[in-house]
């Protein structure tokens, strides 16, 4: 079917008050569309409303400090209000979280993860490329998680940067921060505390660090991620979750 066919008037419009004006207007619109395609190589995008919104976590997760401009960052001051908007907007029924991140600020990352986990709308996460370090809690925060076959997730211990006061309390603090991450991940995925810590402190896997790189299927096998998949399965899953939620709403309370 050509675009001209699509624009032909429906039969019930024949009895309109101004039958002469309609075809003219239409011709003008079609002409404008063709001109845009010819001049700019752009097609006009139909104004359609989707019920699924998408949140992208890319580059570094930026938290309490502004990072130098050579870094690609996802800022928490951008993401947090967006999540509030998604939660409040009645037209949005589900959210897809797409990650390709190297990690970043622990508190910024945990804030985003806690926001996602406490949302009432169905959420599905998809790791493409990499979902390292603080990307792990953000991924498991969604109701269901996917990882691309070639994507990787690095699990490694957290560390302090900058000036560190060399007192035993510093180590205790670091340990507490570590526990925050471990607890969140084990609570929201199938991985056990022992297994996660074993992956985190493994030696010999990374060249300059301790920890483990999980490639696609490995992340699913250890229980961190639910399934290996891409965009279509992720969108399909979110639609399923939306349907389930609607069914639950429709069944009367007994």
């Amino acid at each position: 079917m050509s675009s001209l066919d699509m624009d032909s008037p429906p039969p019930e419009n024949n009895g309109n008050k101004q039958p002469m004006e309609k075809p003219k207007e239409r011709r003008k619109q079609v002409g404008k569309k063709l001109e845009t395609i010819r001049e700019l190589g752009q097609t006009e995008i139909p104004d359609m409303k989707g019920n699924i919104h998408c949140l992208t976590i890319v580059g570094q997760v930026e938290g309490h400090l502004i990072m130098p401009p050579q870094n690609k960052t996802t800022k928490y001051e951008h993401v947090i209000p967006q999540l509030v908007a998604v939660e409040q907007n009645p037209d949005i029924e589900g959210m897809l979280v797409i990650l390709n991140t190297v990690g970043g600020d622990v508190e910024g990352g945990l804030a985003i993860a806690e926001m996602i986990v406490s949302m009432s709308k169905p959420t599905v996460s998809l790791v493409l490329g990499g979902g390292h370090s603080i990307g792990v809690p953000i991924t498991v925060a969604a109701n269901y998680s996917f990882i691309a076959e070639t994507a990787t997730m690095t699990v490694h211990p957290i560390r302090l940067t900058g000036l560190v006061i060399g007192v035993p309390q510093t180590y205790e603090y670091l340990d507490k921060m570590q526990d925050r991450v471990v607890r969140f991940v084990t609570q929201h995925s199938r991985i056990t505390d022992i297994k996660f810590r074993e992956l985190m402190f493994r030696t010999g896997d990374l060249a300059r660090d301790i920890g483990t790189v999980l490639v696609g299927r490995d992340a699913v096998e250890c229980g961190l991620i639910d399934e290996v998949g891409g965009l279509a399965p992720a969108v399909q899953k979110i639609k399923e979750l939306i349907e389930l939620k609607q069914e639950a709403k429709e069944t009367p309370v007994q």
Binding site: M67, P68, P69, Q70, V102, G103, G104, S133, L160, T161
Partner: peptide, 23 residues
């Protein structure tokens, strides 16, 4: 501050001379 990332701190926190203005 705790930065939980794979990247080198030197790489992240190095300041460049030619800083683009982003608004």
């Amino acid at each position: 501050m705790i930065h939980y990332t794979l990247m080198d701190p030197q790489l992240i926190w190095a300041s460049e001379d030619d800083i683009p203005v982003i608004i």
